[in-house]
Design a protein around this nucleic acid. Sequence first.
DNA 1: ATTAGGG
DNA 2: CCCTAAT
Length: 558
Amino acid sequence: MVSHKVLEFGDDGYILPPQARAPRSLRKRRIYEKKLCAIDLLATVAGTLLLEGESSVNAGGENCVVVQNTVKKEFHAEENALSGPPSPFDNGKCGFSSVITTNPNHLLVVSDKVDKEVVEGFSKVRNFRKDLNPGVNVKPDVVASIGSNSSTEVRACGSGSPNDSRDDDVHLFTRNDNDDDDDENFSGYIRPRLTRPVPRIGDRRIRKILASRHWKGGNTDAKPWYCSKRSYYTHNHQRSYPIKKRKYFDSISDSNSDDYRLQGKTHKGNRTITSMKSRNASFVSRDHHVRLRIKSFRVPELFIEIPETATVGSLKRMVMEAVTTILGDGLRVGLMVQGKKVRDDSKTLLQTGISEENTHLDSLGFSLEPSLGTTSQPLLSSYLSENACDDLMLCRDNVLVDPNHDDSTPSPSESFGKLGSTDDSRALVPIASSALLAPRTPNRKFKRTEQQQAAHRRIRRPFSVTEVEALVQAVENLGTGRWRDVKVHAFVDADHRTYVDLKDKWKTLVHTARISPQQRRGEPVPQELLDRVLKAHAYWSQHLMHQLQIEPPPSSQV
DNA sequence: ATTAGGG
DNA sequence: CCCTAAT
């Protein structure tokens, strides 16, 4: 019979030696440390966070460096082993590893309007697909799971356990292997191009930034802006946005109003930036912009079943087919910062941890996610894993690339040869020229600065008396175990107050109410409210059972 | 996604 | 506020 094997692209099966296993305390770090499953085949759109303090790397723009921002995988495979036989289809979440290239010949995507550009880029892929020869023999005897680390290897893995037999490695998608077959158009990377130097983006700020680049370029001081970012910032930044910066910061501070009751009422020019004053005052007061450029993305997790006897070319076609299907189902953009998904669209970049200051942001990832459960019928023989949520990824780095080269440089595939497959520790994989590596700071991925810590943490926003009042009222009515409802009933418009926040606040309120007034800090809460807190707390402690019932408890109405 | 609690 | 475990 035909043997069933699992072919893996990437280093999903990478396993750390036992002695390298981190202590339990360390192992439960962040999500992005979990597992870099999937594949990062395909495509690269290029992303860069242009932040202050970064040294420019792309001197010439003709070479390419791939940075595998592959954070630790937390030895996921090993843990899998403990919990039963690993399924080739159960690869867990995909990490936001990054493929970074200084080669600017990618689709340039900027800011939050990325999806459009990307889709545009990929539409070409779809067209390309039409040219594919459908005559592929699809007898699903082999399961190929495509990993996510730009690996160019295909491994046979017997039972599907990522760590067995690696002997019969086969190289796929490498530059060399790719040159001679009929699939040369598909090199594992999609190379959409811009039709115009400046991407059409909805974000005025970004547009201005881009415009400023050109302005800078035309200046007699013809030094490329990206050659000295710091100098650019200090000397030219201000001049670049003399006028509308006010508006800009006003708008990003929308969600900063401390009193949710004011939300929506202050939208017409009466916005406040005061709430930013505490910790992040400096951020707001200065003219900070985040320069963001997504430079590459990938399809992290994709499974393909194909007979062992199928040709490499057919496998490639199948991958292409799967990818185009994914892309055809509509996409939405996801954002991940510091390993955490950012769902709250109302958050400012600052609150999210994306700031000019925060140059060393470890993992800022943009992902293209299925827009919604839709048509997407699994392909005949390939499909995305359930956890392909983090799917198409847009990665970012701090490499600066001349935007004007977007349409005039060598194709990425030229540079992307075989990547450093299963290497979790190395951050840099020289492709064309190691010289380019020099200016690049070594792997600082695992060292998070105070800055980052601060940025990662949400800004502190003390509850106003008004909010406390609303919270008390809501809890009186709903009880202490329905924070979601409390949120919905009393804090709908307060995007910055999550139900967890409300729960926490109630916790502290109860505590505050119990301690002596002298020990209390911050804006004093009226004793009347604290009394109600105690009362409500006591009541709901007694009526836990009823809490599951309806909601008409003791107190009055709103 | 929510809830409950510890940090 | 953050982080986790447990739902």
